[in-house]
Write a protein that binds this DNA or RNA. Sequence first.
DNA 1: TCAATAGTGTCTCTTAGACAATATCGC
DNA 2: GCGATATTGTCTAAGAGACACTATTGA
Lengths: 266, 266
Amino acid sequence: MSTDKEKDILEMLIKSGEEHYHNVSVDVVILGYHDRTMKVLLQKPKFADAWMLPGGYIKRTNTTAEAAAIVLEERTRLKNLPLYYFNVFSKPGRSRGAADKITEDMRKVGFEPPKDFWMFDDFITIGYFALTEFSRVEPSGDYFAEECQWFSAYNLPEMMYDHKEIVNSAIMSLRYLISFHPIGYELLPDKFTLPEIHSLYETILGKKLDERNFAKKLTNIGLIKRLNERRNIGAHRAPYLYVYDKEVYDKYVQDNNVAILGGFQE
Amino acid sequence: MSTDKEKDILEMLIKSGEEHYHNVSVDVVILGYHDRTMKVLLQKPKFADAWMLPGGYIKRTNTTAEAAAIVLEERTRLKNLPLYYFNVFSKPGRSRGAADKITEDMRKVGFEPPKDFWMFDDFITIGYFALTEFSRVEPSGDYFAEECQWFSAYNLPEMMYDHKEIVNSAIMSLRYLISFHPIGYELLPDKFTLPEIHSLYETILGKKLDERNFAKKLTNIGLIKRLNERRNIGAHRAPYLYVYDKEVYDKYVQDNNVAILGGFQE
DNA sequence: TCAATAGTGTCTCTTAGACAATATCGC
DNA sequence: GCGATATTGTCTAAGAGACACTATTGA
């Protein structure tokens, strides 16, 4: 990319201060499940050698939830995933360091940022998390998010700002939610086995769950249904495939008001 | 109050834009319980003839939770009440109208607000709610919040902006929380009767609860303890007084991670 | 037949929920 | 005694949780 092109983009960025709220942003903790571990989608920005959460500023014509949905789609190409609002992060000084890093990067392409550049101000960030099936996502970077990939959510790399804390807070919220409500629909492929969903719950909750009681519960409430298909897993007994009963699932989510706290926002 | 004094205060306000975040504020839904109804504390601002939620801007040296605690103390004189964050409100145009009203008021005292006055900008607001025992609070106004009083939360007066929606969202969250966790400690006086706490739960949940099962549950888990005192209520059988067992209560709140979602923030 | 994984039934205990009669108080 | 309110027990059904053996698969 030419330096001129970069300068153009930066000019645009500065002017976009008018169409965005200042001092507020959203960060989106995109969680996936793969290989018996929780994964989180992180990006490495053009201007620094550290990982961070996908996030963005909020257009004055959008709600915070819409801003989060835009970020989510940019990184995953997925639309209409439920977004859960889980916390606000506002510790004074939490954005410290951003200004220096951005300035440095801009100067590299011969560009001097304005003195009162809106992006250099302190920000309060609204935290959202989304759940998605790991293999449905092709992590997708762009000009500012040069690299974008999955990491183990329980073993995070060095991260900018307070983003490690934000990821941990999201995981705590997910753990809390799933201990009361059977959310998790989005984390599994359409067809899955009992051992898979069992191990998903164990991974999220961080504790062993009795296999018999677990299977009994999910099938008793009618949340999942067994198909007449099995998955061939090599030298072992072939497990049955299951699907969620979406109607029961949706009814469950609705009846339990999952939407009300840390829940869906349109 | 003299016009000069008012001008001084307004000058201060304009300059305080440097020490506050722009585009973000907190609103605090202060809920009390009295006479078998939920009450909410509202204020009428100097500059308009309508009620609104206590709220405030956020100093750059504070977190949003600290800002909410300051608002809470200003209106109730109470410190250290738990604050529950429950939602973010960001519908575009939600602060519309504020600018005109404030301008009008300023001109009345011969003051022309600056053209890019920070308070006239659109705001995203973080919603907190707090619970408090009705009679412990002496609603407390100030220069900007000229009047301050309790209203029935289920029968709200005309309110500015989207504040009715915010109150309703807080009540939904309280209802959700209390249906899973025995929060409500702050809503009752130290000593209370079974019928009182029973009717509190009925009021919040908006449905009848069987008296026998209700009493059984609360005493079984050890949440409340009966004293050897009764309250004289005139021509009827005198009910026993109860107190919360604070240790059991705190353990319950902690074990159930009430803090994680919609929960406490330091 | 072995190693590895999948699948399943019973018992107990606790809790939730339905249900109504008796006790107390002041008049 | 009356009107009003407070208090309390039993039964049933459902769910939670503890517990371990059998079935299947391919090598």
